[in-house]
Amino acid sequence: MTDHRPDAGQPVTAVGEVRAGGSPDGGRLDYGGPWRRVSRKYVGVVVAESIVTGVVLAGISLFFALVIGAWFGWWMLGASVLVTVVLLVVAPRRARAIGFQLRDDDLLFRQGIMFFRIVAVPYGRMQLIDINRGPLARVLGLSDLKFVTAAASTGVSIPGLPAAEADKLRDRLVALAESRRSGL
């Protein structure tokens, strides 16, 4: 894991497998570079979300099984328990899979293990930055930072940043965007 230096545009620690389209690695998409990871505490948020998902799914299953009396209700319950367990098992990896890089002129963001994606957004494309704090994230002192561009499909939302760091990162991104501003 890496520390969280908001002012670091340069490599902090070379976490992340540097495999930019190189070695034979079973078709796995990856991208090299010094990825900065989100806070370790963010695992707690992912775990909580997984549990909530599991409870909701189990509730729906129980509703089918007990109230409606559908035959597949118990199967659904089993499946939702399984899904929850899998989610809980991969939660640390999911949290670790989120990363970002502040490159010279653009922000790189990665997410996902099974459904992996990387987005590159030039700083000059920033329209606004949102900082959201959910209830659990607030307890853990974390913030979500959302980088909004004119394209809705950009969808860069960096979760699990320590609150102070999120604020610093926002200020830095705004400054970067200001210095590279252009038309739409």
């Binding site: 991208y31 459904f115 994606r117 494309r125």
Partner: peptide, 16 residues
């Protein structure tokens, strides 16, 4: 506005 590259399990199997 931005570029995105992504890959799901099926595409991973196909190296795509």
């Amino acid at each position: 506005q931005s570029v995105r590259v992504s890959q799901g399990p099926v595409r991973r199997m196909l190296d795509i």
